[in-house]
Design a protein around this nucleic acid. Structure first.
Lengths: 204, 204
DNA sequence: GTCTATATGACGATAGAC
DNA sequence: GTCTATCGTCATATAGAC
């Protein structure tokens, strides 16, 4: 396994470190602006290397941004494996949305690109990305069905509607706007957003 | 008043008609792609005029897109005035979200630009836009407070959180994604989205 | 005001020295 | 592999004829 590779030359370590720095910078930038607005000069400047050097690591802007998005999906899939499997499914669903909200409030790249982003078309034809999305959707979908069977989530809602609603809340900008307003603390905002998502706006 | 202006020369009528066509095309394009991805060539091609002619009507791309967004805000503010004032506030709130969802599913420009759009910065410094947003927010905010006082909306949620949540649902992409899936009819999708927004995902 | 043609600049990507 | 310098392309915006 790769994690057991005993020796990595200094050169290779530097190479990987640079690549991680590039990906991290791209993540930050994509959290702040759209794919179209982000430039390779931005990335190069952020990392502190020449633009031409970027192209030694990633063949194109699309390739770099794909890699960044795939990285995020791997992170969330990793996070999911750390969740205690015996937890109630709705608790696990909340945890995933919370994870995404925390990431987003930290200014990092959202889980999914917005619908009208130019990046979407590129991502959808990327096998690694599509596979990760499918894996994530399958996991969340199973939890949704479980939670509905338990009667915890509304069984009358189609699971696909629930899934998309969770994605939307995990990526929407309410949390960021509330943070900007300066009226609430991070933790309060996360609780409020989770509450409006699961319990709705109406009184009980 | 302008609506009573008795005579409008043929030239002026043509001018206004072209301007409306330009705005409509910009609306459609901004519904389909981001501000950055939309080009003035797209707009000119859509309207069927030369690009240079656009600049006789609008001084810049930013100005055109601002005008398009302001147009939408005027439309929603107009829609609001058609609502029977004696209706319960929560009914009026639902109606506004429904109006926005219908617009969005028709492929038209959303009510508000996404957080990380380059357009946002431009809009925020546009007085006409900012004024319309403020007017809209004041109206919706008053209804929210009323509905909370009646106990129909959860009084423990800060009104600002409710407002942003409504904005997010009015602009999010769940409706569009569900429409793309082909599994549901427009009217069903709207009902489902309104339901998850107001009633949440949890069983009652 | 509308058009064709063009000036100007930004950005993705590459060439070639080190 | 990294850099500087540059190419090719495309988009905003304008010039100038009609």
């Amino acid at each position: 396994m790769a994690t057991l590779a005993p020796k990595l030359s200094f050169k290779e370590q530097m190479h990987q470190a640079r690549e991680r720095a590039i990906l991290q910078t791209a993540c930050d930038l994509l959290g702040a602006k759209s794919f179209d607005a982000m430039t390779m000069d931005d990335v190069a400047g952020g990392v502190g290397i020449a633009k031409a050097s970027l192209y030694k690591h990633f063949g194109s802007k699309e390739e770099l941004c794909c890699a960044a998005m795939v990285e995020v999906l791997h992170l969330v899939n990793d996070f999911i494996t750390t969740l205690e499997p015996t937890l109630p499914p709705v608790t696990k669903l909340r945890a995933v949305v919370r994870w995404s909200l925390e990431r987003q409030m930290a200014g990092e790249i959202p889980l999914l690109p917005s619908h009208n982003s130019s990046l979407r078309a590129v991502l959808m034809s990327n096998q690694d990305y599509a596979g990760s999305v499918e894996r994530l959707s399958d996991t969340l979908g199973a939890w949704i069905v479980e939670a509905q069977a338990e009667g915890v989530l509304d069984p009358e809602l189609p699971p696909l509607v629930v899934l998309y609603t969770l994605y939307a809340r995990a990526c929407d900008t309410v949390a960021g706007l509330l943070l900007e307003s300066g009226l609430y603390q991070r933790e309060d905002i996360i609780e409020l957003v989770l509450r409006t998502c699961f319990d709705g706006l109406r009184s009980r």
